[in-house]
Design a protein around this nucleic acid. Structure first.
Length: 778
DNA sequence: TCGAGAATTGTTTTT
DNA sequence: CAATTCTCGA
């Protein structure tokens, strides 16, 4: 064990040896914090003789938990019995033991985001609120942020607030009531309810305080208030709390992460010791320099400087492309070209939004490059999986209305909306669950003969599953359900490729259940399975060790590292995203910048930034400048690579079209609804979709979209200017389009028509760089 | 009741 | 460009 410590640097060793009292480890990116943490746990066990039973380690993902556990186990034989887990899994575990104290049963189910939305939508509907004004997403977001701060429905309702806030409070209250009735908790509830459990049950709190005498929390910068409260309660007595974090890597403010937790740790835990890990073992000097330069633009950071004694390495590369498709293709090409130095498994392509993965995937498929996509639509969120899980939930928990209603007519069994609504109404007025109402309704004369028959068949079907569950393993139960419900049959009949994929997914789910190691008929196993499934993150499922390129968001990449990293889409308005740029709140921009820092510091040897000039975003062609973060890098650390495809002669039809256009041979080209033209900047070439336009293109205003039009008057004026001066007889009209605004100027006499589109932020949307179009021919 | 086609609308990031 | 909701006819 002492020899183990020798491989650590001085501050790391100190962090390992400071076992008693509160400790904040400020660990910069790549400073070996996981190593330090695992050594610390091993040290506690080996040197301090602490029983692993008394140690709790909280990680950010299940994957990180597993990894930490196996690393500790490799160092000390007892290491395997340390409780390493995520906040959510840990809370779920505690609640499984004591949920009855809160009015739940111990086999409560967990609602995911979709379940939450379904439930909330129903509540809003039942209360006759305008779903436009109270849309479930907004309401849920507000409730979620209240839960992040451990504000209960009662507390919130008792606070004075605006009319809307009072309505939200009512919805919150009702939502919690229905969750309780359904014996279900949402993600946030896992934390909040655990805190409430501790608050109201002295004995439970005492038990866990006694058990977890040494607590470690990783990625502390991304904890929210609820998590802080949870940890504080547990650590209150023994005060052996060690948190590790890096304020520069806090990227989850949007889901309630409270950076104050780390900034004010010393105040919350007086006498806390602070140790800084500032030596980076991961990246070359150039990469680190670029990362440091970018992050230095943020204000209010904790004082620390990351350094490295690694070689200089290559400069950070910047490559610009004409459009996003080309960007994707060139990345794929480049990966293939350098395969000798960087095998596929050594490469990662990171991006800001999940939607960017599509083009990359296409490019990789085209070249036959193997890749793993992390994130996007979670496996467990796919329709067929959710359907089957709803069956399982219905079997496990008859109160779960959302689950029952999901499957009552899946596959089709002739129970339509009308019937379902009647049952729901009955449930509402009697104050019983949907399931109970279903039983009553099937017997009542109100149900038509045909409907009653169908309902009874459904009830019997579920009943038979419940019976069967008593003597089957979960995997076998799944098989039975697929079979007897007719679900598998229905999919097979479709016969489409998509249906086949769905069947494969179901088989995969079954395989996961097979790996469960449950006894036949074990009543807990089903609940365990459902819980496991509810709490997995995308990264948890990531395979490692295969020679494949990794594609994922920068958020998902937190905590990971790769020899070669591409950051795709380094474009203003995409990264940093328009949302953060125009919110009027600098903190939003700073969070994006931290995300950029996280992205940069994933790279060990080579970092390549790419940007596209023209990109489709939500079906709209947008022209982007390179990200401001690029300007924040010292030019000496950056290598702007001019690539032939962008600045040299262009190939194929686009080039020909350009010539034709210039020579006046054609006045318009492109497919229906599209036109093509030149942008003012660079030499790039873009397609712009112009649904309202026909005819040829006259380049007008172009360049970065910086103007900001807030009032309707301004928008109209701007649109008019694009059309030229207004004359009498011109008609100006405006209409809402989504959240944006479209202003149309029709100048009848001169046969000129202009449409200018404004996005959510009031910025004029430039269609591939053009603001105005002259209509020449029909 | 149900499906097809039209219309609308939406978007960071995720445990 | 999706994905979802709406509308309408059978």
């Amino acid at each position: 064990m002492t020899s183990v410590c020798e491989t650590l640097n001085a501050p790391q060793q100190e962090a390992v040896r400071t076992t008693e009292g509160p400790l904040l480890i400020l660990a910069g990116a790549g400073s070996g914090k996981t190593r330090t943490l695992t050594h610390r746990i091993a040290y506690l066990i080996e040197e301090k003789g602490v029983d692993p039973w008394h140690i709790l380690a909280i990680t950010f993902t299940n994957k990180a938990a597993e990894e930490m556990k196996s690393r500790v186990e490799a160092m000390t034989p007892q290491g395997g019995s340390v409780f390493v887990s995520t906040f959510h899994a840990c809370c779920a575990r505690i609640l499984r033991g004591y949920a009855d104290r809160l009015g739940y049963t111990k086999s409560f189910t967990i609602y995911d985001t979709e379940d939450q939305k379904v439930l909330m939508r129903r509540i809003i509907k039942d209360r006759d609120l305008d779903p436009k004004i109270y849309n479930e997403k907004d309401v849920l977001r507000q409730i979620s942020s209240l839960k992040d701060e451990v504000v209960t429905a009662e507390e919130y309702a008792s606070r004075p607030g605006s009319f809307r806030e009072q309505k939200i409070a009512e919805l919150y209250t009702e939502y919690q009531k229905r969750l309780l009735m359904a014996d279900a908790m949402d993600f946030d509830d896992l934390l909040v309810n655990t805190v409430l459990l501790f608050r109201e049950n002295e004995d439970v709190l005492a038990k866990y305080r006694d058990r977890f005498r040494y607590i470690l929390v990783d990625e502390y910068q991304d904890t929210n208030t609820a998590q802080f409260v949870f940890v504080e309660m547990l650590a209150h007595e023994h005060r052996n709390l060690c948190v590790v974090g890096d304020d520069d890597q806090s990227i989850y403010k949007f889901r309630g992460a409270n950076i104050g937790n780390i900034l004010h740790f010393e105040e919350a835990f007086p006498g806390a010791k602070v140790i800084r890990l500032e030596q980076n073992y991961r990246s070359t000097k150039n990469i680190l320099a670029a990362a440091n330069q970018v992050i230095s633009h943020n204000e209010g950071r904790m004082d620390k400087t990351l350094w490295s004694d690694k070689p200089e390495g290559d400069r950070v590369a910047l490559r610009e492309y004409a459009d996003s498709r080309e960007e994707a293709r060139e990345i794929a090409k480049d990966i293939e070209k350098e395969r000798g130095r960087f095998p596929y498994g050594a490469c990662a392509v990171l991006y800001r939004t999940n939607s960017q993965s599509r083009l990359l995937e296409e490019a990789f498929v085209d070249r036959g490059i193997p890749y793993v996509l992390v994130g996007g639509t979670n496996f467990y969120e796919r329709r067929e999986i959710k359907d089957l899980l709803a069956y399982l939930k219905t079997v496990a928990n008859a109160w779960d209305d959302v689950a029952v209603r999901r499957i009552i007519n899946v596959p089709r069994r002739g129970i339509g909306d009308t019937t379902v609504e009647k049952v729901a109404a009955l449930a509402g007025q009697e104050g019983i669950t949907f399931w109970d109402a279903l039983q009553r309704f099937a017997e009542s004369p109100e149900a038509g003969k045909a409907a009653a028959l169908k309902l009874k068949a459904f009830l019997e079907l579920i009943g038979s599953f419940r019976e069967a569950a008593k003597e089957l393993r979960v995997a076998e139960l799944i098989d039975l359900i697929l079979d007897k419900s007719g679900y598998r049959e229905a999919l097979k009949e479709e016969g489409e490729i998509e249906a086949e994929a769905r069947l494969e997914n179901l088989t995969e789910l079954q395989n996961k259940a097979t790996g469960l190691e449950d006894e036949a008929g074990d009543p807990e196993a089903l609940g365990r399975f459902l819980e496991q499934v509810a709490l997995v993150a995308d990264v948890d499922e990531m395979e490692t060790g295969t020679d494949r390129v990794t594609l994922m968001t920068m958020h998902s990449a937190k905590g990971l590292e790769f020899p070669k990293v591409y950051l795709a889409g380094m474009e203003q308005d995409l990264f940093p995203g328009a949302r953060s740029l125009y919110s009027g709140n600098d903190e939003d921009l700073e969070e994006e910048r931290r995300l950029c820092y996280v992205g940069f510091t994933r790279a060990q040897e080579k970092l390549i930034l790419t940007a596209a000039r023209v990109r489709m975003v939500n079906g709209q062609t947008q022209v982007h400048n390179t990200s401001q973060f690029i300007d924040e890098i010292d030019p000496l650390s950056l290598k702007r690579e001019r690539n032939a495809s962008m600045f040299g002669p262009r190939e194929g039809s686009e080039r020909q079209m350009k010539k034709d256009y210039e020579a006046g041979r054609i006045s318009s080209f492109g497919r229906k609804g599209q036109s093509v033209g030149w942008t003012d900047f660079g030499d790039s070439f873009g397609f712009g979709e112009m649904p309202k336009m026909r005819g040829s293109v006259r380049p007008q205003g172009s360049g970065p979209v910086s103007s900001y039009f807030s009032s309707q008057e301004e928008k109209i004026r701007e649109a008019s200017q694009s059309a030229g001066d207004l004359a009498s007889g011109d008609r100006v009209s405006q209409k809402r389009y989504g959240k944006g605004t479209v202003v149309e100027v029709k100048q009848g006499k001169r046969d000129l028509e202009v449409t200018v589109d404004f996005d959510n932020f009031g910025r004029k949307v430039m269609l591939a760089g053009f603001a105005g179009f002259e209509k020449i021919e029909e």
